[in-house]
């Protein structure tokens, strides 16, 4: 690929990304009242999207053997316990991440 072609590919990727971000705002501009159905979606979607993001972040975890997903399982378990106990986002995130790093660097 020539440099011009590379730039064109990057421009296309930027355009595609921006379409996915701007489209809802372009369709439902502020002049018109947002349809009831879209308002409903705007209200109920976030919890479902957070669920989707959790699965998305863990999508490459392998379930071929128990050991292959044990670090993820233990770290997520620790996050749940920490979060219900301390209710502090930073403690839960730092605790879970450190636990995962120690597990994959020294245990598994």
């Amino acid at each position: 690929m020539s440099v011009t072609q590379q730039i064109l590919i990057i421009v296309v990727v930027v355009a595609g990304t921006m379409i996915t971000r701007f489209l809802p705002f372009l369709i439902f501009s502020r002049d018109k009242e947002t349809p009831q159905y879209i308002k409903y979606l705007g209200y109920v979607l976030p919890p479902a999207v957070f669920g989707l993001l959790v699965v998305y972040a863990l999508r490459n975890v392998s379930f071929t053997s128990f050991e292959s997903f044990l670090p993820e399982l233990l770290a997520v378990g620790l996050i749940v316990i920490l979060h219900y106990w301390k209710k502090n986002m930073l403690i839960s995130i730092a605790g879970g991440t450190l636990c995962y790093m120690i597990l994959i660097q020294f245990v598994f």
């Binding site: 957070f50 993001l53 770290a75 996050i79 979060h83 995130i93 879970g96 995962y100």
Partner: peptide, 17 residues
């Protein structure tokens, strides 16, 4: 190694919250 798990942790915590 494993530091990338911080993003997983963030999404899990947001979901729990």
């Amino acid at each position: 190694d494993g530091l990338e798990f911080v993003m997983v942790a963030l999404f899990v915590v947001i979901f729990l919250d």
